[in-house]
């Protein structure tokens, strides 16, 4: 037997080096985790009341919709693509839902309908990207214009939602104790994340997503359904954006065509900070969750600080983006 884990004639350092190399792939996620812990520790050390469980839970409550959107984005980015339309699809979803509910449609019809609209939009973009080999950046840019345009055309103003189901979903709290609770949106978001993580780790579709991100040409030659999978991830991202939109409308209790401006940037930032390689093929949905938490924690700290202004969020996110992109660059360079 030729044992390659310790090949004859090669110094053992090589084998150790291989293990290091393997671990290096986890560096971005571990870095995010460390960052999160440090940030939390800093928060607890400096601000009164920061250690309340509810502070952490509120991060989930306030970012449930982002978590769902970022989960869809994770699939897209894992294939090496990008989806700029997510914010606009969220806005479109809130607008359509609010308009239809306002017109007296039952929630049982509106909910599936808005999810279907987002899914179809995603399907369309995926099809254009695959069949006509249009760059994802451009195809989803067109999707963004389209979704935002339709939303604005439907209504330029904010529409309040008074539907019973919607308000119930918005107000329902799952309580763990006095003052310790999460919203239903958090539950939905966590279910989405769990399903997503399962799909990525345990299904052929999920593994094909990673394969395409590693090398689309190889995946094709290995006989994998590259086209179908690629279309599917944009469809999935469309669905997640629509679901994110629904959660957003729970959160805001209204629909507004100018909602979620720039959410695509937040979602991309969360994915990147969560350690997913922007060129695709490496990363975990768990990392994206961490990324969303980092974004949420930055905001929380700035709120607690009181003297720091909100724009610091953007600067810090920019700095983190830079740091993680450079880190990714360094990691991939060495593994190659």
């Amino acid at each position: 037997m030729i044992d390659v884990t310790a090949p004859p004639g090669t110094p053992p350092a090589k084998a150790r080096n291989r293990v290091l190399k393997q671990n290096r792939r986890h560096v971005p996620v571990l870095a995010t985790l460390a960052l999160l812990i440090i940030m939390y520790a800093v928060g607890v050390a400096n601000y009164r009341g920061f250690s309340d469980t509810q502070v952490v839970l509120n991060i989930f409550v306030d970012n449930a919709f982002l978590l769902v959107v970022a989960a869809g984005m994770t699939f897209v980015i894992l294939t090496g693509g990008i989806d700029l339309s997510v914010g606009a699809v969220v806005a479109l979803t809130t607008t359509v839902a609010a308009t239809l509910l306002h017109a007296g449609w039952p929630a049982a019809v509106v909910l599936p309908l808005v999810l279907l609209i987002g899914t179809v939009l995603g399907l369309g973009m995926g099809a254009v990207i695959h069949f006509f080999q249009v760059e994802p950046f451009i195809a989803t840019l067109a999707g963004m214009f389209l979704a935002r345009g339709i939303a604005l055309l439907i209504n330029r103003n904010s529409i309040p939602i008074t539907d019973g189901f919607w308000t119930a979903m918005a107000e329902e709290r799952i309580r763990f104790g006095p003052g310790v609770f999460i919203s239903t949106s958090v539950v939905i978001a966590l279910i989405v994340v769990l399903i997503g993580a399962y799909v990525l780790a345990y299904t052929r579709f999920g593994r094909t997503v990673y394969a395409i991100g590693g090398s689309a040409d190889s995946a094709l030659l290995m006989g994998l359904p590259v086209g179908r999978t690629r279309i599917a991830v944009y469809t999935l991202s469309g669905f997640c954006s629509a679901l994110g939109g629904v959660l957003y409308s729970f959160y805001m209790s209204s629909g507004y065509s100018l909602n979620a401006q720039g959410m695509e940037l937040d979602a991309i930032a969360a994915v990147v900070i969560g350690g997913v390689l922007l060129t695709g093929g490496s990363g975990y949905l768990f990392g994206t969750v961490l990324g969303v938490l980092v974004l949420g924690l930055i905001q929380t700290i700035i709120t607690f600080q009181g003297t720091l202004s909100s724009w610091w969020t953007r600067i810090v996110v920019g700095v983190l983006l830079f740091a993680f992109i450079v880190l990714q660059r360094a990691v991939t360079r060495r593994t190659r």
């Binding site: 052929r204 990673y210 394969a211 040409d217 290995m222 994998l224 093929g281 490496s282």
Partner: peptide, 16 residues
């Protein structure tokens, strides 16, 4: 080599 080097050895053999 037309494999996906980001995946594990086992996956590269069996994916699909």
């Amino acid at each position: 080599v037309n494999l996906c080097t980001n995946l594990s050895v086992a996956e590269n053999i069996f994916i699909g």
